[in-house]
Amino acid sequence: MQKSLHIDPDKCTGCLQCELACSHVNEGVFNPAKSRIKVFNFHDQGRMVPYTCTQCDEAWCMQACPVDAITLDAETGAKVVSDALCVGCKVCTIACPFGTVNYNASTGKVIKCDLCGGDPECAKACPTAAITYVDANWTGLDRMRQWAAKTDAGAQAEA
């Protein structure tokens, strides 16, 4: 059974431990600015929302990459950027309708969540279980997927 990140914003306290863990494992330093998961703080509503790539089936980023630098990890379902192949053209950053692929100017490559190869650090670091890594059919990702389908320029026709 494939797993995915399940995010429950009601449990999030906005501590950013997920961003710390993500930047640590991916960049080797504690640097929330380079985290693949971001917590949005809606201050005047008292609402904190962690947000990252859902590894959507449509894989806009992967489809749009002109040099095959984003590939599917068959085991985890993650769409993974190869630093060796990415040329930094940024097409994926505008193609992803969820805004979860970012350009990292200091490396000249793009960055996105790769599920840490199947053991996501953000979920492990979350002190309140607002981020968990669970069986995919548990995640209620439907909401996100509906959103994805609406963005689809026609892909609801089964491929």
Binding site: K38, I94, C96, F98, G99, N102, Y103, A105
Partner: peptide, 13 residues
Amino acid sequence: TDHVGVIRGLIQN
């Protein structure tokens, strides 16, 4: 450079 894709998402949705 951050989260630019959502502009597409918001427009196209």
